[in-house]
Design a protein around this nucleic acid. Sequence first.
DNA 1: TTGTAAATGTTATATTATTACATTGTGTTA
DNA 2: TAACACAATGTAATAATATAACATTTACAA
Lengths: 132, 132
Amino acid sequence: MEKQHNLSKNQKIIFDLIDKSPEPLKAYSILFNVQKKGINAPLQVYRALDKLVEIGKIHKIESRNAFIACQNSSCQISKATAFSICESCEKVSEISNTKLSKYLSNFADQAGMKYSKYNLEFFGLCKKCKSK
Amino acid sequence: MEKQHNLSKNQKIIFDLIDKSPEPLKAYSILFNVQKKGINAPLQVYRALDKLVEIGKIHKIESRNAFIACQNSSCQISKATAFSICESCEKVSEISNTKLSKYLSNFADQAGMKYSKYNLEFFGLCKKCKSK
DNA sequence: TTGTAAATGTTATATTATTACATTGTGTTA
DNA sequence: TAACACAATGTAATAATATAACATTTACAA
């Protein structure tokens, strides 16, 4: 059974904001957006983000320093993530593909080492931008 | 035939430093190390880093904001990169595995889109750290 | 030799993230 | 319910990472 994480006040405010957003949000843009709700300092945002990442409710898009809500209910704990990123409009989508995740989880490097955690970011043009 | 890139003075200084380093280097640590050679400002470092990344001589480890020399002579142009990162000692190795790169280059997402560029970072414990 | 693109130099500033310390809330268990 | 432990919060200061704007110089091809 899945561990239930009751989000705290700040965590909930920040998760809701990210979850509603159609695009990844940056920490200081989050800060700006939640100041009316009493969250005044960067650290309050970063602490909530850290926790939300830890429990898998959001992911960090490393190449963009931005955060999106997890779209894949089954990766709430896993840190095995894959995204596609449009280099033109910056649209980001989480990829959930069983074959891909199996392939990567089973991948063994030169020394035979396996890694259960990974982050994969694909870059290119999304359909919309490609057809322009 | 491969395009020859003659590195400029600053590019060469910074590439040599990164290339000699056994571990990824951060921009401001590079800055500190090259000040005796007349590179005084962050922007001088970032400009050289940008160029070196662009021509494939170095790669950025996104999750660490650090840079390593390319270990794979065949990816001088390609932006398709994969690394293993030890979460204990922070050792980073570039993975060059034809099957993996083919698999990822041919991967098609939910919408059938393919992406020639990607960055993959695996996380775990290296052999040394595992056996401790 | 002159035009152009790349690279450099310098100052200032923007953006992203953490340290340190004090306090408050929440849930467990004695 | 009291006492404890741990998570979360609040606040100020600062560290670390990265870019903007502008002036100048270098490299090299037309």
